[in-house]
Amino acid sequence: MVTKEDTKKMKEKKVSRREVIAAGLTGLAGLAVVSGLKPAQLLAQPNKTPGQKTSIRYGMVIDLRRCIGCHACSIACKSEFDVALGVYRSWVNYAERGNYPNVRRFFFPRLCNHCENAPCAQICPVKATTKRDDGIVVIDQEKCIGCRYCMQACPYGARYFNWRREPNQGKTVSPARKWGVVDKCDFCVHRVDKGIVPSCVNTCVGRARIFGNLNDPKSEVARLISSNATTVMNQDLGTKPSVYYIGADMNTMEGAPKGGR
C-alpha cells in the first residue's frame, strides 16, 4: 500500500538525490573551469625573515609511485620550447621486468639532472654552460661554439645538438632555440624566474613531478626527500644531481630501458 504521502516522500527523495548529483557535477565542472583558467602552479616562495638570506637550490623530486607513464611531461616540454624533431629535453624511459604473471613495467621520467658538480659546466671551453646561483645549469646559446664536448661529458644523455640549420619556428613563449649549438632542459628558467613551476611539473597528471627549493626545509621537495627513500642517477660518478627519484628501480633502469628518445 503506497500512500500519496509516501510517493511524495519518494519523489522528494529522488529529487534530492538528483540534486546532490547535479550539485556534485556542477562543483566538479566548476573546479575544472577554475583549474583550467588558472595559468599555472605557482612556485612556493621561500619564507624570508628579514635579515636572513635564504639560499636557493632548485631541484625536482620524481615520485615514481605516482607516475602513470602518460608522457604528458614530454609533450608539455616539447610545446614549451622550440624543440627540434626527434629530440626531447625531458622524456620518459620505460622497462619491463619479470615473466608472466609476475611482471611489472617501470616508468622513468628523465631530464637534465642539474648536477651540483656538473661535468658539462666543468669542461665547457667557452663558459657557455654555467651553473646559476640557484643551481640551474643553463646554456648561453649566443656563446656556445658547438664543439659538443659537453654532450660527451654528460652521463645522463640529457644534451642534444641542433644539427639542422633552419630558422626557428618562433611559436613558443620561451626564447627561440638556435641552430648549431647544444641544447638541453633548463628547468624552464623563463618560468621559474617569474615564480611559476616548470612546464612538465605543471602538467603532470599524477603530480609525480614536484619542483622546489631543496635548501628550504619547509618546501615540498625537501620534505619528500627527508621522509622517503630516494635515489639519484649515477650516484657513483659524484655529480650530485638535483633530481631525486622516489621508488626508482635503478637496477632495471640501468639495464635496458626502452622508449624515450
Partner: peptide, 8 residues
C-alpha cells in the same frame, strides 16, 4: 666540425 665555426 664546430656547430658555429666562426665562434671559435
Amino acid at each position: 666540425g664546430l656547430g658555429r665555426p666562426w665562434r671559435f
